[in-house]
Structure formats: C-alpha cells, structure tokens
Design a protein around this nucleic acid. Structure first.
Lengths: 111, 111
DNA sequence: CGTGTCGCTACAGTAAATGTAGCAACGAGA
DNA sequence: TCTCGTTGCTACATTTACTGTAGCGACACG
C-alpha cells in the first residue's frame, strides 16, 4: 500500500505497487513516449525538429511528454535542444534489441 | 507512402513510415499493452486473473489490447487463458533489461 | 523594424479509457 | 434440472487523454 518509488509523481500508475518497473511501464506506455526517446537516440533535437520527427504530433502532447521525461530524468533541455541524459541513453540501450525484434516481427506470418 | 508492414491494422500509427519499429513502438505505446505482456511473463492467465494483475483495469480496454496483441501474434488464448506466444516471449525477452534498469532508475537522484 | 526561429501554451473538437453492469456458455454440485 | 460460480467478452454513459490549429513572449539575424 505504501508508495516506495521516491521521485515519481503520484499520477504515475503502478507506482503504488512499489515496483519501479510498474511506474516505468506506465510512463513508457503513454502515447509518444517511446517514440520520443527513439527519435532522440542520435542526438538532441529542437522541439520543432522533434515534432517533425514524430510525424507532426501535436505540440501539446509532446510538451507534456517532454516534461514527464525531464522529471523522470531521461531527457534534458540543452542549448542544442532536447537530448537524452545519461540515464535516458541507458534506457534507450535497453530497448535497442527491440529494433532487431521489430524487423523479425514484421516478417512474421501475421494474424 | 507505401504500407510495408504486412499484417498490421491501418490504425497503427507509424506503420506508414514502413519502419517496423514504428509500428511496434506505437502498439507498445498504448495504455496497458506493456503491462499485459509483463503480467503474462510467467505463464497464462485467465482474463479475470489478468484484470486483477493489472490493477483492476477495465475489461473493455483489456479486451481491446488483448485483441491487438493477438493480432500482432504476441498473445494467444489457450485452455489455460491468455498466454504469450513464442513471439510474445521473444518480445518480453527484449525488455527484460528494462526491469533491472527500472531498479536503478528508482534509486536515481531525479528532480 | 520586419522575419524567422525558439520553447511553450490555450482552447475547442475528437478519440480513447474508465467504471459499472450484464450477456451467453460451460462445468460442478445438490 | 436448477442454481451457483466461472469463463471470455460486450454495452454504454462518464471522464480523461489526445489532436489540430492558432498564437504567445523571447531571442537572433538583417
């Protein structure tokens, strides 16, 4: 019942379980979050460039997600625009295998 | 402009880029999707058990996600309930490092 | 000054998720 | 056979999340 995850906003579902993975799964399971981290993989982007990279997603939600990602410590705003922090790059590294998996998945027999 | 990802529903954002990772990122970036795969990691669950495991999420959305995951080939419905397919277990394997990362993340200095 | 970019926000409209209730189908007991 | 409990799944009204468009103040270039 106790909330053990320290610096996580109350609004992050799953944090109440005390299992960090739940909070992370919830954060990443929001629209555009995974995509943003993915698009920043090769370096910082300005907010506008990120918007372009994210298929013209609405600035409203991008701003919201960027704020969440900044609070989570995955993204930071520098002179070059938005970029992954060290932690953010670690996060990205964990789903690098996902890319290779996606390739295999796309070649599957389908539904 | 061409749609190259074979058995992906048109509604899957990012599929239009032709990059499978985008379709996958979109699918996984929907509420409860990551969580469902996570909860099924240790074996099949009945729909009700899954609902309990997912913090009493509404059956409506669970059913929707399960259908999507089945169409994607990650989940199947067996006599034991819902379980990961071979492909689903491969997918889960790719974000196993995420669990360890989450532990480190929860101990961060973060804002 | 005008023009263009930056990060960011307001707001109306639409899509998605929630919460509650309940369906038909199957099996186990009595 | 009649209830009881379970299964997977759906309807529907409410609430929340996201979209799309427009535009803000601040800064830089000319």
């Amino acid at each position: 019942m106790a909330k053990q995850v320290p610096a996580t906003k109350p609004g992050v579902r799953g944090s109440r379980t005390g299992r960090p993975i739940m909070a992370l799964l919830d954060l990443l399971g929001r629209r555009w979050t995974l995509r943003i981290v993915w698009e920043l993989r090769e370096g910082a982007l300005t907010s506008r460039a990120l918007r372009t990279a994210c298929d013209e997603a609405s600035p409203t939600i991008l701003q919201t997600r960027l704020t969440e990602l900044r609070e989570a410590g995955f993204v930071e705003l520098t002179d070059d625009g938005y970029g992954l922090t060290g932690l953010g790059r670690e996060l990205f590294a964990t789903f690098t295998p996902l890319s290779r998996f996606a390739e295999r998945w796309s070649k599957r027999g389908g539904s």
